[in-house]
């Protein structure tokens, strides 16, 4: 049997996926905790354990993400944008636009029918469109970031965040607390502001249906709902929205390895 592994080492989380020719065998995710190399190694061991495999049995390892350089060789490294495109194409082949909301950036990727990158815009300068602002505001509100999605769905009256900037968002959140605004309304307001920001990036490349969302942001139903409202499209969520990058890393590594073999045999 031939086995493949993909690693997506992001700024907050390391994700691993093990696959064979029939599909996905196991996933695993763990926090980076300040050590990319160790997190990458451990998340891989955990994923292998889940399907009872040893690292020696892996034929190809693909890596992507901010911390891909920390993945031990021999791993085929690839850019996150292409890996996200390949990963979502594998999971939901009908998708033509992908919105990936990570901790450090938000990306809107337009895909070809073969899962290649037809166009892409990235918001990496402003934290307002990325997951990191959620962490900041969760701290201010004294809540867990994973509870924000459900909380926001309970809001009927999202507060307005006037500035599309994460630094001001923090100050605004503090002011709203002082005004006794409900926590769920503050969270929903934040999601709305993020959705405007991401929506404005998405407009730059003219969204085509179907549209999917992945990354940590996709695990937040409050944000996804606001985003659907803002861009006026239904958003499809893959079953494991955090793993599209790791899956793409496997697929791109396989592409590269096959290409190299082809070149060698010619």
């Amino acid at each position: 049997m031939i086995y493949y592994a993909g690693l997506d080492v992001g700024s907050l989380l390391a994700k691993a996926v093990i696959m064979d020719d029939d599909g996905i065998l196991a996933y695993s995710v763990r926090s980076i905790d300040g050590n990319f190399r160790q997190a990458a190694r451990q998340v891989m061991v955990e994923a292998l354990d889940k399907c009872g495999l040893l690292s020696e049995t892996l034929n190809v390892v693909g890596a992507t993400g901010l911390g891909a350089a920390f993945v031990n060789d021999p791993a085929v490294r690839n850019t996150e944008i292409s890996c996200q495109a390949r990963g979502i194409h594998y999971l939901l082949p009908q998708v033509r636009t992908l919105i990936e909301i990570g901790d450090q950036s938000a990306r809107v990727i337009k895909l070809t029918e073969k899962g290649m990158v037809a166009d892409c815009v990235v918001n990496d300068k402003c934290a307002m469109g990325s997951g990191s602002v959620l962490q900041t505001i969760a701290k201010v509100l004294g809540i867990n970031v994973t509870d924000m999605g459900e909380l926001s769905l309970q809001s009927a009256n999202p507060v307005r965040f006037s500035a599309g900037c994460s630094v001001f968002a923090e100050t605004e959140a503090i002011s709203r607390i002082a005004e006794n605004a409900r926590i769920e309304d503050i969270v929903a307001g934040l999601h709305q502001a993020m959705a405007f920001k991401i929506g404005s990036i998405a407009q730059k490349i003219k969204i085509e249906s179907d549209v999917a969302v992945t990354g940590g942001g996709a695990c937040n139903p409050g944000l996804v709902k606001m985003l659907e409202k803002t861009i006026g499209n239904k958003l499809f969520l893959p079953r494991e929205p955090m793993f599209s990058g790791a899956i793409g890393a496997v697929l791109m590594a396989l592409e590269k390895v096959r290409m190299e073999k082809l070149c060698c045999s010619n």
């Binding site: 690839n78 850019t79 996150e80 944008i81 292409s82 495109a85 070809t112 290649m116 990158v117 037809a118 166009d119 892409c120 990235v122 990496d124």
Partner: peptide
């Protein structure tokens, strides 16, 4: 680094077009 990563992905965009 981010610029180089974007560039890597842009190559297949150029191929497609």
């Amino acid at each position: 680094e981010e610029a180089l990563a974007k560039f890597d992905a842009f190559i297949e965009t150029m191929d497609y077009h």
